[in-house]
């Protein structure tokens, strides 16, 4: 198998890897880098569980060939906050009960983050547009929407 070199920014750090060009960004994150926070739900861009932020925009990592990220900036759930320093979205998802099985959660949070990074006061329809590509089978989206609103409010205040 021929390997290619790829270099990109991952969660604000430079990474350089030797990769199989047949792998997707999702394959590399989960398989090679052990960043399993980004989930695989369908592998075809139909569920959003693998959503990451690529140069500021939400994308399905399962549809991004790894070489496509050459020189670009990728952000995953692992890069936005941890237990000591939660991102307001993570905090709001926890506090509002927006997490059930948790499998859609990282992708849902990344889609929401891509929105809030650009839109300080999103409307309901903007929030829904941002997360409509993220299937959640547990929550009915009610508490997720509440969490995104709450996080937006908190981010505005700080």
């Amino acid at each position: 198998m021929s390997k290619l070199k790829v270099a990109f920014q991952l969660n604000d750090k430079d990474v350089a890897l030797s990769v199989d060009p047949n792998d997707t960004l999702l394959d590399v994150l989960r398989g090679q880098l052990n960043l399993t926070g980004t989930k695989k739900g369908c592998g075809k861009g139909e569920c959003g569980a693998c959503t990451v932020i690529l140069d500021g925009e939400a994308v399905n990592a399962c549809l991004i060939p790894i070489m496509k990220v050459m020189g670009r900036s990728v952000q995953t759930i692992e890069g936005i906050g941890d237990e000591k320093n939660l991102h307001p979205l993570q905090e709001a998802f926890i506090d509002k009960g927006a997490i059930q099985c948790g499998y859609c959660t990282p992708g849902m949070i990344m889609s929401s983050k891509a929105l809030l990074d650009k839109t300080k006061s999103p409307t309901q329809s903007e929030i829904r547009e941002a997360i409509a590509g993220n299937i959640c089978r547990c929550t009915g989206y009610v508490k997720i929407e509440e969490a995104v609103q709450a996080a937006a409010e908190k981010m505005r205040d700080s």
């Binding site: 692992e78 993570q90 959660t105």
Partner: peptide, 23 residues
């Protein structure tokens, strides 16, 4: 009382382990 879920932190930070994550 609506206490905070015990699994929420791990899941919100992408640290929760699912079967598909195991190796």
């Amino acid at each position: 009382k609506s206490v905070r879920r015990l699994d929420a932190l791990e899941k919100a930070t992408g640290m929760g382990t699912f079967t598909t994550d195991l190796a």
